[in-house]
């Protein structure tokens, strides 16, 4: 299993200047079920796929409300996400207390990313094994951010993370330009459609009212709301009405491994961290990850 001698320590660079431990933490994100985010000029929508630890258990949380104007979707280690979401809640509250105004989303994400970076540079802590999609609104309008275990963060018009998110990304890359002017309903529908791409090739999973959760934040001052259970039904019905996604999805055939590895690693390639090669872990619900 060990690839080389440079991959067991956070504080060790490989001769190529890579940080394998950080790259492995990035892999943990891909173990979690998918989260999708899309943004128009007025709203941001997150759509998430919830996993169940067993038939008898409840679902694991995918959406965390941070403040009236910010909500996050997570992929990766849920326990790590809870730490980050608590931090984010504290920070937004502190900002509100200090300035009597809601915290700008970008400033919040920056702080989270800086927090993530710290544990990539010290041996005493492992990096966070979770990626976030942060949806929020502020004076500059709606925002969708992604944060990574590496401490990188990006602002996106549309993005997907987690298991088989590449399929969703492929869908979004085809359609994201039309989303800027989209209405709320249209935006929700495209988020759900993108999410469906991540289960389209799976024989035993499909989007249901039980496993789909949606969050919406808008600039109209209505704050943040979450759709679950019956409220999700119309969007799932609309999916069935449209043609099944697997028809036009060529790269879905062999699960996520081939498709997900290059693209999901891409964000860090930008930071000089080259993409990890194969060993993308096998698909399957791990109890720790959602």
């Amino acid at each position: 299993m060990f690839r080389n001698q440079y991959d067991t320590d956070i504080t060790t660079y490989s001769p190529q200047g890579r940080l394998h431990q950080v790259e492995y933490a990035m892999e943990a994100v891909k173990q979690g079920s998918a989260s999708v985010g899309v943004r128009s000029k007025t709203h941001v929508v997150l759509a998430t796929l919830k996993r169940f630890a067993s038939e008898l258990s409840g679902d694991q949380k995918k959406l965390f409300a941070i403040d009236d104007h910010v909500v996050i979707a997570i992929s990766g280690l849920t326990a790590d996400a809870r730490v980050l979401s608590r931090y984010m809640r504290t920070e937004t509250q502190h900002h509100k207390f200090m300035y009597d105004e809601p915290m700008p989303v970008g400033r919040l994400v920056l702080q989270v990313a800086d927090k993530c970076q710290i544990s990539t540079q010290r041996a005493s802590k492992r990096p966070f094994g979770v990626g976030l999609l942060v949806a929020g609104v502020d004076e500059n309008g709606p925002h969708l951010y992604q944060t990574c275990p590496s401490g990188n963060y990006f602002e996106y018009l549309a993005m997907a993370i987690g298991a088989r998110s590449q399929s969703a990304k492929t869908y979004l890359e085809r359609t994201y330009t039309t989303l800027a002017e989209a209405g709320v309903e249209e935006l929700i529908q495209s988020a759900v459609t993108a999410l469906r791409e991540t289960v389209a090739s799976s024989k035993d999973t499909e989007l249901t009212t039980k496993n789909t959760a949606i969050a919406i934040v808008g600039t109209d001052g209505s704050g943040m709301r979450v759709l679950e259970n019956a409220a999700v039904q119309p969007y799932i019905d609309a999916l069935d009405a449209a043609s099944p996604a697997s028809d036009d999805e060529e790269e879905d055939g062999d699960g996520d491994n081939a498709a997900a590895a290059p693209a999901a690693a891409a964000p860090d390639a930008a930071a000089g961290e080259a993409a990890p090669a194969a060993d993308a872990p096998a698909e399957g619900p791990a109890d720790m990850q959602t």
Partner: peptide, 29 residues
């Protein structure tokens, strides 16, 4: 890394005071 990125994100140029700034090459974080 993606065409879906909002232009201007992934800052590499940072202001550090009114009279000085840094530009980063390497790991952004």
């Amino acid at each position: 890394v993606s065409k879906m990125l909002v232009p201007g994100t992934m800052r590499r140029a940072h202001l550090v005071d009114h009279h000085s700034g840094v530009v980063i090459s390497g790991l952004i974080s």
